[in-house]
């Protein structure tokens, strides 16, 4: 089964990037990406679209165990030319499920001088709703915003909530579920409300 690419690489990647930029600028807003679905259940169209938009010869990608299927590795190499890395500390992007983050994996957090040299998490989720138990405040949010995730996302949110301690170093995350996507940059304050 072939993995789909962008029909019009120039204009499709521009359109997808603007949705990503919008998601990152206004954390917690949901965006639906128009991308052909890749085969299998692991990777949704939104996640695949992000990989096609952002990855190229200059990026190193770390795949969480379980997601590192030969089909995905081959498709990434063929469509983006990105390098796969075994070391999460040198990854520009890390493809993860929230459960993987229960382990203290040493991603790149950037340094105090260069906090931008950090890993961006690309997360495959089963649930991503605009209302729910997570309250977001901070830059890009006029008052407050909400996100609804399932219980499996707890380790992910714990990891992202810890970003405030290490700011400006930290992890930025792009959360995806099927064709939908939201972003949680390190600047966002995350609280769990009952």
């Amino acid at each position: 089964m072939l993995w789909p690419t962008l029909n019009d690489p120039v204009h499709d990647s521009q359109r997808l990037f603007r949705q990503l930029l919008s998601a990152m600028s206004e954390p917690g807003t949901l965006h639906t990406l128009e991308v052909s679905s890749p085969p299998g259940d692991d990777i949704g169209p939104a996640l695949w679209g992000v990989l096609l938009t952002l990855c190229d010869l200059d990026t190193r990608v770390w795949l969480a165990p379980g997601l590192d299927t030969p089909e995905l590795c081959e498709a990434l190499a063929f469509h983006t030319g990105c390098r796969l890395s075994d070391d999460p500390a040198e990854a520009d992007f890390a493809l993860v499920t929230p459960g993987v983050l229960a382990e203290p994996i040493a991603f790149a957090l950037g340094s105090d001088e260069y906090p931008d040299r950090s890993t961006t998490l690309l997360v495959a989720l089963d649930t991503l709703e605009p209302t729910g138990e997570w309250r977001l405040t901070g830059p890009g949010i006029a008052l407050r915003r909400q996100l609804g995730l399932d219980a499996a996302a707890a380790p992910l949110m714990a990891r992202l909530a810890a970003n405030r301690e290490s700011f400006p170093c930290g992890l930025d995350a792009i959360l995806t579920c099927g064709a939908r996507l939201a972003a949680l940059p390190r600047s966002t304050r995350i609280e769990e409300v009952a």
């Binding site: 952002l54 200059d58 931008d116 940059p185």
Partner: peptide
């Protein structure tokens, strides 16, 4: 396109770390 992608990745980091 390669240059645009490089700038786009940098822009996402810039937005994530406001003012840096």
């Amino acid at each position: 396109e390669q240059t645009k992608r490089m700038i786009r990745r940098a822009l996402l980091k810039a937005v994530a770390i406001p003012g840096y």
